[in-house]
Design a protein around this nucleic acid. Sequence first.
DNA 1: GGCGGACCCGTTTTT
DNA 2: CGGGTCCGCC
Length: 726
Amino acid sequence: MSFVDQLNEKQRAAATCVDAHVRIIAGAGSGKTRVVTTRIAYLIKELGILPDRIMAITFTNKAANEMKQRMEEMLEESVGIQISTIHSLCVRMLREDIAVLDYPRSFTILDSDDQKAILKRAYKEYGVDAKTYSYGSVIGYISANKTAFVSVEKAKDLAGSFQSEQIKAQLYAYYEKELAQMKALDFDDLLLFVYRILEKYPLIREKWQNRYDYIHVDEFQDVDRLQWGIIRHLVSDQCKLCVVGDPDQTIYTWRGADIDIIMRFDHDFPDCKTIVLNENYRSTPSILNGANAVIANNRNRIEKELFTRAKDQGKIVHFSAMDDANEPVWIAAKVRALHASGARYRDIAVLYRSNYLSRSLEKAMLDAQIPYRIYGGMRFYDRAEIKDALSYLRLCLDHAAIDLAVRRVINVPKRGVGDRSLEALEAYALTHGVNLYEAVKADAVVKGKARAALGQFVEAVEAARAKVHDVAISILLQELLLDSGYLHALEEANEQERIENIKELIADIEHYEEENPDGTLDDYMQMISLYTDKEETESNQDFIQLMSIHAAKGLEFDYVFVYSLSEGVFPNERSVADGGAAALEEERRLAYVAFTRAKKKLFISDAQGYSFVLDRLKKTSRFVAEIDPDCIEHVGLAKQETKRDGQEAGSANAYIKANTWQNTQMESNSPAKRKAQLRKGDKVQHQAFGEGIIVRVDDGLATIAFAHKFGIRKIRIDHPSIKKIG
DNA sequence: GGCGGACCCGTTTTT
DNA sequence: CGGGTCCGCC
């Protein structure tokens, strides 16, 4: 029996088309990963292609690992296919060839904390206010410029006479200068440097072209121009490219993803074959048709209706809660009910637009004693203690970027080295032309108690440096954390969780050492920089999974909850304000991705009441109304509303009409003047109107949002009829 | 000069 | 809720 026998006709065509470039337009749940893995197995087992001639590029580390695992299962052996993200592919290439750009093989890879630290110094130097220019937006600005090949000079030109643009361009210049000086690369540089090398050095380009005969690119709809440039350079005349993607699932245009790349693939490769997979094997008809109706509202789209032959298992359930607090409680109750009726927790996921939404969910899960795991948000390698520990390790490598590590841990644990001492050290380093660590070591600046503490710090680092090549990384780290007093300080503060995390890191390093007996500290540090989250240690524990929709891309679950479908939250207001109609369509694609993750049953929810984030009353997301009315049932407040108005229950339009009272637009908000006792956001009790929330306070007059019947009222803040409640 | 506590603000998505 | 800032204490 052949691998390909298990595929449907179109899938089989896609998997066995190996003599031309192939574009596979694969709808949600149409088995695209299966097609790619089968294709690779077919190449190896039936055509006798050597595994190391095959490469697969995935979007995330998680997807790469999953594909590797599936390949192993299919081939019943572990083979040498290169399966990696484009970023790790680039690191591999740079370790071989970065020397031509006059950079060391052991270049430092910056994470977002490092980027922020650099910007912080730039802000200080130029007197830029971090509130007016958030780090995030400036990092985004720099990244957008870099990936679009906009140099510092060009950015300055483009800025023209706009002061805010000029400032951002100035920060960009500082940032790039700083990186060059440290011989450090950020995530964008990893790709940019590779692109530059492939572009400029034909011999190196040919070397890499000669390595691969079959290149596969997954999630091709989210590829950006720079990535596409690199991939094209890797495709030689005898190499066949196979790309898989779904334009309806493009959710990364904010990061440069360009839908035209998949749309115009046949222009770049006129002899390519295009195969459309539109049979869905994942979801029930209600879920699929409901989602189809939503995505059909996008105008900039190629029509592609997915169908399924699966049996239906009930409509999509929409719950509209009375208020913020009720929504996650309802989800928790539903999860418990599903579990009671036999579902495993691990087959249940809660998805949301923004990571901050996980907080309220987390609380509800804790209260309901439901085991859960949150993906994204604060990731393992983002934790302060992990960064500290890795910074101590970085001190052992005498890199040009060592200053970043010194700044991070010179006063962790507290050694009495504050801003002033650090400034003095920086000045010393500058005048003596040495790095910060050398300045500390020189022992000529800091006096008094801090001096002794720094002495101990230097001693610990020197001891580690002396044996960096002789001792395992895990041992080195343990000694460093002990000698520097870091671990001791955590114990003193009774930081059990942080200590546990450090232990986990050490275990993680030991694991790395087992897998890579020849791995150096350098290798480890570069590898770790590409991982934003720790590999899930296989566990048979049963927990529900909480994650952003972006993080859920490519995954599927029996039961899916999509949380907080309120206008402004999802579709995200800021996103739409920035990007207009195109951004709204991307939000809709996100909704489509979220809904199509569900196999058996989809639950979506929103809440009424006042939103602190949006500063106005909440309103159900338009995406709820866009779901095919035949595929959805409304429960909770929404249902009551429709009944009260004597309208047909279950009709999305009737439902929306019944809720138009919520459309009440708030006056635009000027900075609220604060009165001593009552403030915006406080809950109050009114004699007649019941509970309300203060929306706005102006000159002693409070605008208060009360429950439905009463709505918005203006009341003197010192009026005896209202009192604050907890 | 360093440090801890009090208080403020503002929350997009990721390799 | 976390991160930043301001302030008063050591």
